[in-house]
Amino acid sequence: MGALLVAVLVCMAALLLDHLVGEPRRGHPVVIFGHCATWLERRLNSTPGSGGFPKGCLATLILVLPLVSLAALIVWLLPAPWSWLLEAVGLWLVLSLRGLAEHGLTVAEALEQQDLATAREQVGRIVSRQTDQLDETGVATAATESMLENGADAVFASLFWYLVAGLPGIVLHRAVNTLDAMWGYRNGRFLYFGRCAARLDDVLNWLPARLTALGYAIVGHFRPAIECWRRQAPDWDSPNGGPVMAAGAGALGVSLGGATRYDTGLKQRPVLGAGPAASAATVHGSIRLVRRSVALWLLVMVLGALAWELVLW
């Protein structure tokens, strides 16, 4: 059995584990890593803005390099099929397809029950913006954007980097992506300290984000998705979030973006997509879009691996 087919089977096993088990409720490695990152940041960046770019680079290196090296060493020392099992478990731990859907569904169900207070509380768990003053459209917009963007960051990018670089690849991506989520804010504390992690995350997610956007277009409304991606994504401040959310909004036939209040103040964001404002149905639609996109690319991987096996045979 070739290496590519083994890798695809590992991806399928990890997705199955995620579907059956979901995320670990306690002792999640990403949560533990986040605690370590918080501890180190408080020491290197104790006074807001004092850390600067060099200390941010040092902190990123200290947190990421040992983990990637350890993952590479373990895979090198561990024989098959034990290494395959470890990779499947490792990939399962960084995937979040079921967890993402569960978070989105809690928001959609609260909106459907016209329980705006609960909807605000639930969406506040998955977005960084202020949610206490959001109306129903604002809550649905925030939840939909989170589903679309995390479909790229928390699901597809992990599968992509596993196929590219195995267990070290997914450790590298998840560690950097976590640091970007924690430090990648353009405020006084993290503007320079978090820049290294943010730029590295941009590089690692550049191709996965565009493949995700293409997947959204294929399984959704193709022509509007491609047109929104082409016209609207360049105006978005994130080089990877723009294509993903513009294509996702076009694929869903809905309008996203617009003014949003963060802790740093009101931010005027471009409108993405075309169509009516977001609603509870839009959140459900975004969850289906992510799932269908993952299924699409998994099918592509399976067919590609089988074709490669035939070539080798």
Rank of each mutant, 00 (worst) to 15 (best):
W82P: 06
T38Q: 14
L65M: 14
H103R: 12
G124Y: 11
W76A: 14
V89K: 07
E121I: 04
S50W: 03
P29W: 05
V64Y: 01
G52P: 03
G52C: 09
V75P: 04
R26W: 15
A110G: 08
L70T: 14
Q114F: 09
V30P: 02
W76V: 07
A59G: 05
T47Q: 14
L20Q: 13
A117C: 07
W84L: 13
I32Q: 11
G22K: 02
H35G: 12
S50T: 03
T38L: 13
Q113M: 10
V107T: 03
T60Y: 07
V64F: 02
L40S: 08
H28S: 10
V64Q: 03
P79N: 11
R26V: 12
L111E: 10
Q114R: 15
S96Y: 06
P66W: 11
L111P: 03
S50I: 05
A117V: 13
G22N: 05
A110D: 04
G99K: 00
V64D: 01
G124Q: 11
Q114G: 07
E23P: 04
L105E: 15
L111C: 09
P24K: 11
S128G: 15
T118C: 10
W92C: 01
G51V: 03
L67Q: 14
V89S: 06
Q113C: 08
P81E: 10
T60W: 15
I62F: 13
S83M: 10
L95Q: 00
W39M: 12
R129K: 15
H35V: 08
L86I: 05
L73E: 11
